[in-house]
């Protein structure tokens, strides 16, 4: 048990060279402390910018919210192979990722522009900012202490 906890504290450092498969195997032990790979964060960052433009939605005024969700999507992409919504609880995550309903952009977002995660906000939303871009450094800075 002590090894698992110790490993988790090195999550940031090892994420760049641990393969997704290895991380996936550890995930059940370490759970929420795993950091996503930089590659997946960058993929989900670009996706988020593109989808905000495409859907006419905006990021939250608090980019910390945006950053956390993008990292959550990246972590699920690493561990499950799909960007499953990080703001929901699932009995069986791999099954949900395979089913696809809650893979980002989820069905409620695609059909009704409803993003419970506050990643994509319609302009009239009280928490919507004016930006559809977020840099890798912004994400890094906003989540530096997580």
């Amino acid at each position: 048990m002590s090894i698992q906890a110790t490993c988790s504290s090195f999550g940031v450092g090892i994420s760049s060279f641990v393969s997704p498969l290895t991380r996936s195997r550890h995930r059940t032990l370490i759970r929420a402390q795993v950091q996503p790979s930089e590659k997946s964060v960058e993929i989900m960052r670009k996706f988020s910018e593109q989808y905000a433009r495409k859907s006419g939605t905006y990021f939250c005024v608090d980019k910390g919210v945006t950053s956390v969700v993008i990292k959550g999507l990246a972590e699920h992409k690493d561990t499950l192979g799909a960007p499953l919504c990080p703001c929901r609880h699932y009995d069986d995550k791999p099954a949900e990722a395979g089913q696809g309903f809650w893979n980002c952009p989820c069905v409620p977002m695609r059909e009704r522009k409803e993003c419970h995660c506050m990643l994509f906000l319609t302009p009239e939303n009280d928490f919507a900012g004016k930006e559809q871009t977020i840099s890798f450094d912004e994400i890094k800075e906003a989540t530096a202490n997580m």
């Binding site: 919210v65 956390v68 969700v69 959550g72 990080p86 609880h89 995660c117």
Partner: peptide
């Protein structure tokens, strides 16, 4: 409060 590490609104 039911929360999760990478849940943005939870952080909010």
């Amino acid at each position: 409060d039911f929360t999760a590490t990478w849940c943005g609104p939870c952080r909010f």
